[in-house]
Simulated assay, not measured.
Amino acid sequence: MSRASYTENQKKAFVLEWMQSNKPKSRWFQDAKDAGHIQGHYNSFDAWIKLYQHELEINPNFANTLGDIYATERQREALAATLQSVKVKPANIHSIGTSKNLLDEFQQTLLPDDVQKKYIEFLETKVNLLVIDINAIRSENEQLKAELEGLKKSNSE
């Protein structure tokens, strides 16, 4: 969340959290920023404190409601972060399991059968063309070796 998009209730929740921490403003802000809980500049946070601290001190019920709202939002953000961290990424798909059969079985579930069949046919065609190219290169290589041997023999005579 960018600093410009904090609602008034979120700002109050930050101030409330700082008040409950009993830490100096600058220390709380730096810890919260390092943990990724808050963004923006310390001066903005200081302005929020000047704006909301008195209100939060004289209305404890309002403070409790804000704490609940902020805790709920924090829980949603934590859940979203957790869900993001467990998404399967192409780079770590092989970490799903060490069993090749299990991985193959899993990958079979990723595509519909007709797409799998077409993709397998496409890959087989590519591989077959590569094998043909390799065989042609090997044949040419053998012919060149034979020519080279013939030239060596004629030079040595």
Score class of each variant (00 low, 15 high):
Ser2Met: 07
Ser5Trp: 07
Tyr6Ala: 00
Thr7Tyr: 01
Lys12Arg: 12
Trp18Glu: 01
Met19Ala: 09
Met19Val: 05
Gln20Tyr: 04
Ser21Met: 01
Asn22Thr: 07
Asn22Tyr: 10
Lys23Leu: 15
Lys23Asp: 10
Pro24Cys: 07
Ser26Gln: 11
Arg27Met: 10
Ala32Cys: 06
Lys33Pro: 07
Ile38Thr: 02
Ile38His: 01
His41Cys: 03
His41Phe: 11
Asn43Phe: 06
Phe45Ala: 00
Asp46Ser: 15
Asp46Cys: 06
Lys50Ala: 08
Leu51Ile: 10
Glu57Asn: 09
Asn59Phe: 11
Ala63Thr: 00
Thr65Ser: 12
Gly67Thr: 02
Asp68Gly: 11
Asp68Val: 11
Thr72Phe: 08
Gln75Lys: 11
Arg76His: 12
Ala78Met: 12
Ala80Cys: 06
Ala81Ile: 03
Thr82Asp: 08
Leu83Trp: 00
Val86Ile: 15
Val86Arg: 00
Pro90Tyr: 01
Pro90Ala: 00
Asn92Ile: 02
Ser95Glu: 14
Ile96Val: 11
Thr98Leu: 04
Lys100Ser: 08
Leu102Tyr: 11
Asp104Thr: 08
Glu105Met: 09
Phe106Arg: 01
Phe106Trp: 05
Asp114Tyr: 03
Ile120Asp: 05
Glu121Thr: 06
Phe122Ser: 09
Phe122Cys: 06
Glu124Thr: 10
Thr125Leu: 13
Asn128Met: 09
Asn128Asp: 13
Asn128Ser: 15
Leu130Gly: 11
Val131Ile: 14
Asp133Asn: 14
Ile134Trp: 10
Arg138Thr: 10
Ser139Thr: 13
Glu140Arg: 08
Glu140Asp: 14
Glu140Val: 04
Glu142Met: 11
Gln143Gly: 08
Gln143Ala: 15
Leu144Gly: 01
Glu147Cys: 05
Glu147Lys: 14
Gly150Glu: 15
Leu151Glu: 11
Lys152Ile: 04
Lys153Glu: 07
Ser154Lys: 05
Asn155Tyr: 12
Ser156Val: 06
